[in-house]
């Protein structure tokens, strides 16, 4: 007898990394060589960023690649803090990112669930609109968005104006939908027969099963606003409203010769900007794996 249907708890919603890898062979030395060189190329700029941010005097020669005991200082961090008010810009970045995350998790999950499991008038239209939105890059809409948000609604230099165009991350909606689709249909049938309404089915049955997807989607959503430069740059004139990425970029463009090591100061800012995202991804890296991403973007 063939095992046709899989039982519910065999459904792989947990991230699974090492599926169907080739067995370890004696040829793994070439893999390690390739990967080692690759990793070096990828990590070196990060290393160099940290080294550079700690240099008392800028050293672009080869010897600058290794930390020189006499040339180490934390002063650059102080300088960038004085120039940008790191606390305030980090709060701005946090509010921007947090607002997007919140809206995406609440409204995106609802939309993803509706698109995957509910039949209602307009579902096809909503789905097609989502795909269109995924394909048309946001950057191409900056002019009308700028006109609308800054000129019509006067939302320049405001958190709302910053958050609005990013509020619901469509990639996340797409991921949610894919995961809700993968859940066995019978689970929903059973819950409906048991008398649960859709909201309860979503919160009690579906959501606990897609927790890994939720994290993946949140990670992907996080890097959007945290790293975004163009839009907040367009709509913030006051430095007190600028997220760190924007403030740092502006600082780069108008490098102050008043500081003793301009590049060191910029790199100190870059470290502060990079650390939260990198730390978050390293902490949750098991949720940021190929199958999750694959199912999110495979069309």
């Amino acid at each position: 007898m063939t095992q046709t249907g899989r039982t519910v708890d065999e459904v792989a919603v947990a991230p699974d990394d090492v599926t169907s890898v080739e067995p370890r062979t004696s040829h793994s030395w070439w893999r390690l060589t390739v990967l080692g060189i690759g990793a070096l190329v990828f990590v070196f700029p990060f290393y160099y960023m940290i080294i550079g941010s700690l240099q008392k005097n800028q050293n672009t020669s080869l010897s600058g690649v290794v930390p020189q005991p006499g040339n180490i200082t934390l002063r650059n961090y102080g300088e960038i803090n004085a120039a940008l008010n790191l606390g305030k810009t980090l709060i701005n970045s946090g509010v921007f990112t947090g607002g997007v995350l919140l809206a995406t998790v609440v409204f995106g999950v609802l939309a993803g669930y509706a698109l995957a499991q509910l039949r209602f008038r307009g579902r096809g239209l909503l789905f097609v609109s989502m795909l269109l939105l995924l394909m048309v890059p946001f950057q191409l809409l900056i002019i009308p968005l700028y006109v609308l948000i800054v000129r019509y609604y006067g939302l320049g230099d405001s958190y709302l104006g910053m958050i609005a165009p990013f509020a619901i991350n469509s990639t996340a909606v797409f991921i949610f939908r894919q995961y809700f689709l993968q859940l066995p249909k019978e689970l929903f049938d059973a819950a409906r027969i048991d008398g649960a309404n859709e909201f309860r089915i979503l919160t009690r049955i579906a959501l606990p099963l897609v927790r890994p997807a939720l994290l993946t989607a949140m990670l992907l959503t996080f890097i959007g606003p945290w790293n975004e430069y163009l839009w907040p740059f367009l709509i913030t004139k006051q430095q007190s409203m600028q997220p760190l990425a924007v403030a740092l970029a502006n600082y780069m463009n108008t490098v102050q010769s008043t500081v003793s090591n301009p590049f060191g100061t910029i790199l100190a800012g870059a470290v502060v900007l990079a650390v939260p995202a990198v730390a978050l991804f390293l902490a949750f890296q098991r949720y940021f794996v190929a199958p999750n991403i694959g199912s999110a973007v495979k069309g």
Partner: peptide, 10 residues
Amino acid sequence: VTASVAMVAV
């Protein structure tokens, strides 16, 4: 996953 602004700096 790192901000382009930070990477551009390096």
